[in-house]
Nucleic acid binder design. Structure first.
Lengths: 200, 200
DNA sequence: GACCCTACAGACAGATCTGTCTATCTGCAA
DNA sequence: TTGCAGATAGACAGATCTGTCTGTAGGGTC
């Protein structure tokens, strides 16, 4: 953690392993992809693999780290593209969902999928929980900036919509789902920011 | 399909297999549970197992059939408990989500989880798609009965919320998520049924 | 009793998966 | 030159998983 600790150049081999895992784990599922396949696909020796990732789960966590970085940045980009108004950003972030669902080979949320294949208490499962918590926190901050009286609830309902879109986008693949999610988000944001909550 | 076709008594052995699979598949995931474990847990001979389920996937589909029957009836019960008004039923069905998330050992939606472990085009994956389609259709009919101008969109946004609650309930396990989902559903139903759609 | 259906018990084959280990090659720096 | 770090290649052990097969036992019915 200091300057004496060599800042290792990320090692081409390690990068190739991670790239192969990124594609294979997402496309086929974690348990369905064996170490041998990753090794073959990345053109790396087995010893090299286990040098960088002492166990398969270490690679899975690294894979989730990578997905987290990419997905988080896409969310933030989509939000910022909606302008400076936090309320608009809360709705605009759903454009990231549309893009994701449109992508070829879309197979749902990598974190929800990983959680489905792991047990609570494991490092992999913990990583998925941490990711969802971070997204929720980010949305909550946006909701607070937008002046929502109850940022927590608004953030939670929006992430619920987002997760629903991510999860079901893999199942029915109907292109209108993300648009409906965005429209619903707009309605929820408007309702939450409306000065007087409607009775009944 | 006729009276001549014997209506087989469901066979105690088959039932035990299915019961064991129901518990094990949901709790640990499909790929993580081997045939040997199911056999041991259900106290059945291997030959008996393969007589009833020629391949593991056949058991997985039967497992999903069972989950479908249970979950569908819970949804309908919750909806009917909200009274005769379709609009109330659209919101009331979210009580099934609360009950599900509260259940011990809750691990998310069995269908989303199964989809995460299967490939598009397989019988297992098709079964999950069929389930989600059936739920969507049921909600759409309710929305139509409630007089929604666009039943399809309302149904989709509600199932998005539902799926989000099911998926993320397994991750953060925060007890307020189902309540937020229900409240959001109420807001969306109210907005959809409001005679004059708000400008802006 | 003879027959048959269902189930039990468990060995077995063949594949696959994780992780270890040995041996070799290459490039760089002292 | 010598030494070392990182990589390659691939055999190997040990576990596990799916599916097949043989053999046996009980419980009905003709």
């Amino acid at each position: 953690m200091s300057a004496t600790t060599q800042t290792r150049p990320p090692s081409a081999a390690r990068q190739r392993i991670l790239d192969a895992a990124f594609v294979l784990f997402y496309a086929r599922g974690i348990r369905a992809v064996g170490i041998d396949l990753i090794i073959a696909e990345s053109g790396v020796a087995k010893a090299t693999f286990y040098k960088h990732f002492p166990a398969k789960d270490d690679l899975v966590v690294a894979y989730l780290d990578k997905v987290d970085a990419i997905w988080t940045s896409q969310l933030k980009e989509a939000a910022e593209a909606a302008g400076a108004d936090p309320a608009s950003q809360l709705v605009g972030l759903f454009d990231a969902l549309s893009s994701a669902c449109r992508r070829d080979g879309y197979r749902g949320c990598a974190f929800i999928n990983a959680a489905a294949e792991s047990q609570p208490g494991t490092a992999v499962h913990d990583r998925t929980v941490r990711h969802k918590g971070a997204v929720l926190e980010w949305v909550r901050d946006l909701a607070r900036s937008a002046g929502a009286p109850d940022p927590e609830s608004l953030a939670r309902s929006l992430t619920l919509l987002l997760d629903g879109g991510l999860a079901s986008g893999a199942l029915d693949a109907s292109p209108e789902a993300p648009a409906v999610a965005k429209a619903s988000a707009g309605a929820l944001v408007a309702a939450a920011l409306r000065p007087t909550p409607p009775p009944t």
